[in-house]
């Protein structure tokens, strides 16, 4: 409990520091007024708008006004849309979340078996092919991979739609394109595109873990007990490997959300990544700040979940926590 409270306090602190940085950052890039206000506007109109947005005050004052509003749950109003920033972000969030979840699913469900295969037969040709593939996944630019996916599966083969999110289905009160067949057809390519980097990482982690754990004495002892190979691999080996895999997957979930920008742009996926790029272009500070705050909260929450999962998988961690 103390642990969770400590984590939440940390989260608040990080969010505050981050908001200062964003304020200073946007200030350094340029004056939103220059971009937002129609160049044809008269001086009077211009002044009125600047006052309305609060841009005439000193930066620190703007910041404290922002903080005051924040305490009341107000993240500010978008300069561009003239609507609460948080609303706009939450509208776009489900599309990005489902993309990220689908990507993680793909990375884990394909990555762990491939990594196990490559780790258990390190010298086989198939294993070397898997590892070569993972290097390609790492090193080829993500946007290029996305374009190639479209070229192959949508244009040449015509199996999957080119862009967009597709129809949204409802299941247990959640609305997502994962719940319709057409939606799944739409999400397949962007999710895979987003998953490639993580997939490559999961393969390499699983393989490295397998190579490290298999020669250990407890695996030999498990064999000496006469256990079946299946149980040795899927219980004794996998439980040990999962520790780093869970960490990396959990941590990169935040990254997937934050950096889905490229994939969302290529596949015209209406998520948050596209929103933040547009907002940075027009220096729509309230959206940028609110978006980054949301990302901070997501990261902190994920860290917390990873830590909790960790202690379930690795009992030694639980003891250390209790001992403090």
């Amino acid at each position: 409990m103390v642990f969770i409270i400590r984590r939440l306090l940390q989260a608040v602190l990080v969010a505050l520091v981050m908001s200062v940085l964003v304020f200073a950052g946007v200030f350094a890039i340029g004056n939103p007024a220059d971009i937002l206000i129609d160049p044809e506007a008269t001086q009077a109109e211009r002044l009125r708008l600047i006052q309305q947005l609060g841009l005439d005050r000193p930066l620190y004052e703007q910041y404290f006004i922002f903080l005051g509003n924040l305490l009341q749950g107000d993240f500010g109003t978008s300069f561009v849309f003239n609507r609460p920033a948080l609303h706009i972000i939450f509208e776009r969030m489900p599309a990005t979340l489902e993309l990220a979840f689908a990507a993680i699913f793909i990375a884990v469900v394909i990555g762990i078996p491939l990594g196990l295969w490559a780790g258990l037969r390190p010298n086989a040709v198939s294993s070397k092919a898997i590892m070569a593939g993972s290097i390609l996944g790492f090193s080829l630019p993500n946007f290029w991979q996305g374009i190639m996916l479209i070229l192959l599966f949508s244009v040449t083969l015509g199996w999957l739609p080119v862009t967009g999110r597709g129809p949204v289905g409802e299941f247990l009160g959640m609305r997502s394109s994962l719940f319709t067949l057409e939606g799944l057809r739409h999400i397949a390519l962007p999710a895979f595109n987003l998953a490639v980097g993580l997939l490559a990482l999961v393969i390499r982690l699983t393989r490295a873990g397998t190579l490290e754990v298999m020669p250990q004495d407890f695996i030999r002892f498990a064999r000496a007990k006469g256990l079946r190979e299946r149980r040795i691999i899927f219980i004794h080996l996998l439980r040990n490997i999962l520790i780093p895999v869970v960490t990396v997957v959990g941590m990169s979930f935040g990254g997937l959300i934050a950096f889905a920008v490229v994939t969302e742009t290529i596949f015209a996926w209406p998520g948050m990544g596209k929103l933040i790029i547009d907002s940075i272009n027009v220096l729509d500070r309230p959206i940028i700040v609110a978006y980054l705050m949301v990302i901070v909260v997501v990261f902190i929450t994920l860290n917390l979940i990873v830590d909790i999962l960790y202690s379930i998988i690795d009992p030694r961690i639980r003891l250390e926590e209790a001992g403090q």
């Binding site: 000496a224 004794h236 520790i243 690795d314």
Partner: peptide
């Protein structure tokens, strides 16, 4: 085996 620290699966 020799090393009792290593023969049991830690997790």
């Amino acid at each position: 085996f020799q090393d009792p620290m290593m023969t049991l699966n830690p997790v």
